[in-house]
Computed example of a mutant assay.
Amino acid sequence: MRKTETFQDNKEIIAELKQKDSHFASIFDEHTQLDQQINHLEKDVIQHASREEEIEQMKRRKLHLKDEIYRVIEKNKPQTQH
C-alpha cells in the first residue's frame, strides 16, 4: 500500500467491507467517531488543556484502528492491484 493512500482512495472496498464484515464496520465507525471527538476537543482550547491525556489516548486508539483498517483493506484487495 502506498504511504499516501487514503480512505478516499479505497472508498469502494471500504463500502464493500462495511457491508459484509461487521467487525470492519465497527472499527471503521469507531475510528470516525474518535476523529470527530478529537477534532471537537482540539478546537475547544479550555477543554483541550484539561483533557490533554485523554486526547492523546484517543489519538493512539485511532491510530491503532487505522492500522487495523488498512490491514483489512490490503488483505481484501484484488491481487492484481498494487
Rank of each mutant, 00 (worst) to 15 (best):
K11E: 15
D21Q: 09
K59D: 08
T80K: 00
D29F: 04
I13L: 15
Q47H: 14
L63H: 07
D29Q: 08
M1V: 11
F24P: 00
I55E: 06
H23D: 15
E12K: 05
E74P: 01
I55S: 01
E56F: 06
Q79W: 06
R71Y: 13
Q81F: 09
R2W: 03
I27G: 10
N10E: 15
E5V: 05
A15L: 04
N10M: 13
I38F: 00
R60V: 13
E30R: 11
M58K: 10
D9F: 07
A25T: 03
R61E: 14
P78N: 05
V72A: 07
I69P: 03
M1R: 06
H40Y: 14
H23G: 09
A49W: 15
R71S: 02
E30W: 00
K62H: 11
Q19V: 05
P78I: 04
F7R: 02
V45P: 05
T6W: 11
Q37C: 00
I69S: 07
H64F: 04
E42V: 06
E42A: 10
E54A: 06
V72T: 12
V72Q: 14
Q57N: 15
H31E: 14
L65Y: 02
T80M: 07
E68N: 07
K77Q: 15
F28Q: 06
H31L: 08
Q81H: 03
K20C: 02
A49G: 10
K3G: 11
P78D: 13
Q47T: 08
